[in-house]
Design a protein around this nucleic acid. Structure first.
Length: 520
RNA sequence: GGCGGCGUAGCCAAGUGGUAAGGCGGAAGUCUGCAAAACUUCUAUGCGUCGGUUCAAUUCCGACCGCCGCCUCCA
């Protein structure tokens, strides 16, 4: 069974076939770095990070490019408002963006090209389009002539004449209102670069065509982005690139669904006047800040933990809308706790920490799909593990259905817990066979979770916790007092101690003759 | 108006032309002094409404209702 991918271009699921055997080039449209990232900006990176992991697991050599657009009208406007150079804002916001990516476990990006570092490539690209008569200069601006491209509209399924608006601010310079800017003449005090058409800067769209071409070539395998980019951004990209190179730009166009805040409206989107006039809904931007609370995305990540957010995003199919609110994430995270508790159990059983110091799974778990794991023997556990692994991979094969695949991860967890129960693995003397099967099962769990980017590093705990030696000593002291009371059958006192601790968020667990504690 | 998406249990969410994964929550049970954790069982005669095709539809087709996105610079 090949991997199947939904292609926006054909609006069907297609078998995944690469242009070069064994190699995959992915281009994902990244942010315009004019303000801090919000949670909606993380959806694409998280799903494509997962896709890259999965393709690599299937022995593809993947190059994944995420661009940074660091020159743009909004950046210039911000620069004016804040009175600092555009480049400084761009640098700040790029770092903010990257920090957020790391917190969500997005660490698979191969290249992050910046538009301002590819001005030459952009100019060459535009010059090429002019030579081929797909673009024209007009008073220092350069426009793409949409009418020259017979295929224009194929991605968004629109007819050019239907979508052409009024032409915007530059309408008077355009031959047709649907034409879009490739190059914009610099206004006084704007950042600019010299070009054959005078000082100016690139339009939107063009940087993606130029940089994807530079890094991935004339044709590459996957082009991704949010659904909202299909038009005009991607439509214009295909038009530019294909007119320039006379080759298909990308084989598969993959678009992720958008995030909406729990209340209403799209997170980070434009506030539409209709939506706001029909109810008491506040402008969308406010809703976004409300949904992220104090401190924006950084604060959100600090409060919830990056892994919970990633888990939440991957529970839903990537093409669906995700309704996001802090409460919903917190609610859904109960499921993750089961895994965390299990990893502690794993450590009690094997006397080894679940998480590897390096954060890498190589050497401990198979990294590729085709590894020859022996699930042989008559162990019912391994038979089940093998089955669940197969189910998981089949679901991932089908357009990266992470939400469905997760069900197998949960079933795997249950199977392992059941096995540990039945075989009393936490007792001192357990059979090596059972222990071996258990380890194999856990390594499979780790292998699959790795594909989703989960359970690679210990979770950064969300809330402030009574961690540390002092807290531990104090809790241990109370536990000892309580156990003394229990030995004397003084259960009232024992329960009083436990209840008080519970009120403070400390859970006690009596097991195997000892008492453990953890915080909620 | 054009293009596109969605509507599955209290909540979240997969999915299939043959009779509904999984998670949260809830109920009961095993274990425990009692709990916690873990495990077991149960929790949608039903997949927006109404028609149609079919031996059979939640799944295909049509209409309708409701929600949402894009239509020149939002990931």
């Amino acid at each position: 069974m090949p991997i199947r991918v939904y292609n926006t271009l054909t609006r069907t699921k297609e078998d995944f076939r690469t242009i070069s055997p064994g190699k995959v080039g992915i281009y994902l449209c990244g942010p315009t770095v004019y303000k801090e990232a919000h949670i909606g900006h993380m959806v694409g990176p998280v799903i494509f990070d997962t896709i890259k992991r999965y393709l690599a697991y299937n022995r593809f050599e993947v190059t994944w490019v995420v661009n940074i657009t660091d020159v743009d009208d909004k950046l210039i406007a911000q620069s004016r408002v804040r009175g600092i150079p555009m480049s400084q804002i761009a640098t700040e916001m790029t770092m903010d963006y990257c920090a957020n990516l790391m917190a969500l476990g997005v660490d698979q990006i191969t290249h992050m090209p910046k538009a301002t570092e590819h001005i030459d490539d952009i100019i060459t690209f535009i010059r090429n389009l002019i030579e081929r008569d797909y673009a024209y200069e007009s008073e220092g601006d350069v426009f793409f002539a949409v009418g020259k491209d017979s295929e224009y509209g194929k991605l968004s399924n629109r007819r050019p004449e239907e979508q052409a608006g009024m032409g915007g601010d530059a309408a008077s310079k355009k031959r047709a209102p649907g034409d879009f800017a490739l190059w914009k003449e610099a206004k006084p005090n704007e950042p600019s670069w010299p070009s054959p058409w005078g000082n100016g800067r690139p339009g939107w769209h063009i940087e993606c065509s130029a940089m994807s071409h530079k890094i991935l070539g004339n044709s590459f395998d996957i082009h991704g982005g949010g659904l909202d980019l299909i038009f005009p951004h991607h439509e214009n990209e295909v038009a530019q690139s294909e007119c320039c190179h006379n080759l298909p730009m990308a084989r598969y166009w993959m678009h992720n669904g958008l995030l909406r805040s729990g209340e209403a409206g799209k997170v980070g989107g434009r506030a539409t006047s209709e939506a706001n006039s029909q109810s008491n809904i506040e402008p969308t931007t406010q809703k976004m800040s409300r949904s992220e609370g104090a401190g924006g995305l950084r604060g959100l990540i600090e409060r919830l933990g990056g892994e919970r957010i990633r888990f939440y995003l991957l529970r839903t199919h990537y093409r669906s809308t995700i309704v996001f609110s802090e409460e919903r994430v917190a609610e859904a995270s109960g499921a993750l706790e089961k895994f965390y508790l299990f990893f502690e159990r794993y450590q009690r059983v094997t006397k080894q920490p679940f998480y590897h110091a390096s954060g890498q799974i190589s050497g401990m778990a198979p990294r590729f799909r085709d590894h020859q794991q022996s699930y042989t023997g008559n162990s019912s556990l391994l038979t089940e593990v093998d089955r669940l692994r197969g189910d998981f991979l089949r679901k991932m094969d089908d357009d990266f259905n992470t939400g469905a695949a997760m069900s197998d991860l949960f079933q795997l967890l249950t199977a392992l817990n059941r096995f540990a129960d039945e075989n009393n693995l936490e007792d001192e003397q357990t059979s090596n066979t059972a222990l071996g099967d258990f380890r194999t099962g856990v390594e499979t769990l780790r292998e699959l979770a790795y594909l989703l980017g989960l359970f690679i590093k210990p979770p950064v705990r969300a809330s402030e916790e009574p961690e540390g030696d002092l807290a531990d000593s104090l809790v241990r002291l109370l536990i000892n007092l309580r156990n003394e009371a229990r030995r004397n059958k003084n259960f009232d006192t024992a329960d009083q101690i436990r209840d008080s601790l519970t009120d403070m968020g400390i859970i006690l667990e009596d097991a195997q003759g000892t008492t453990r504690w953890r915080s909620e």
